[in-house]
């Protein structure tokens, strides 16, 4: 019994170690070229600026603000989220990767990478937006947690879809087509939550939990299904 549990822990540590290695590799590669991250951050900054340039003098309702925030976050993240898988395919390293590591390790490493990337984009976009539009949420913690939970759910679903898209022939246009119907519930709830936090509504714990539960379900199913996407059968 003890031996078995020890074995389990050791295997877990090895898995963790390998995941960290994969994650490190992804970060090195992405930051060496810097193209994709720079472009998506620049995209986020420019769209925020242009939105505020044209509409800062207007007194927009909070719901419109929340829609704009999420549209900017979503479209700036869309570009780089699938890039992590497409890069492997384009540089021809995907076969090497699938020989070298287990599907589950690849999935978790990419998921963490996408998650961190999404958070970075959100951290850049949201303060910029709040600063330029000169609005301040009534309940800041609620606002931050709504943005955080929305980002978690979006990054968990788009990681799997990015892997699917990387395997097809028409990449960027297909990504929008196949991710739109599946991200709609998340975007919907996030927009509602962010709007109510800007308006100063009471904390909607149920919907926040819903977003986290959604990402949990998607991550666990994707963990099981990832090998069918990535490995040659």
């Amino acid at each position: 019994m003890i031996r078995r549990s020890l074995n389990f822990v050791i295997r877990g540590l090895i898995l963790q170690n390998r995941i960290v290695k994969l994650l490190k590799k992804d970060f090195y590669i992405e930051f060496r070229s810097r193209a994709s991250i720079n472009i998506s951050l620049a995209f986020a900054g420019i769209t925020t600026l242009s939105v505020s340039l044209t509409s800062a003098t207007m007194n927009l309702p909070f719901r419109v603000h929340s829609i704009l925030i999420w549209v900017i976050i979503f479209f700036s993240a869309m570009n780089s989220l699938s890039h992590i898988f497409i890069r492997e395919e384009e540089e021809g390293t995907s076969i090497f990767l699938s020989i070298h590591s287990e599907a589950e390790e690849i999935y978790i490493a990419k998921l963490l990478f996408n998650f961190i990337l999404f958070i970075v984009i959100t951290v850049v976009v949201t303060p910029l937006y709040l600063f330029f539009m000169q609005i301040w949420p009534e309940n800041f913690i609620f606002f931050a947690s709504s943005v955080f939970c929305g980002s978690t759910a979006l990054s968990s679903i788009t990681t799997t879809l990015g892997a699917i898209v990387a395997k097809t022939s028409m990449r960027s246009s297909l990504f929008t087509v196949i991710s739109f119907p599946l991200t709609i519930p998340v975007l919907w709830i996030s927009i509602n939550l962010t709007a109510s936090s800007l308006e100063g509504g009471s904390v909607d714990l149920l919907n926040l939990l819903f977003l986290l539960a959604f990402s949990g379900v998607i991550v666990s199913f994707s963990y099981l299904l990832f090998k069918f996407i990535w490995m040659e059968q």
Partner: peptide, 29 residues
């Protein structure tokens, strides 16, 4: 989306796996 995915995977030998994963995930959602 499923049909566009299916047609975009025409040359991929692993089409059955990928398209099934997409259907299953959308069925969960």
């Amino acid at each position: 989306a499923y049909f566009s995915l299916f047609s975009a995977l025409k040359s991929n030998p692993n089409r059955w796996g990928i398209s099934s994963v997409y259907l299953i995930i959308s069925m969960i959602i």
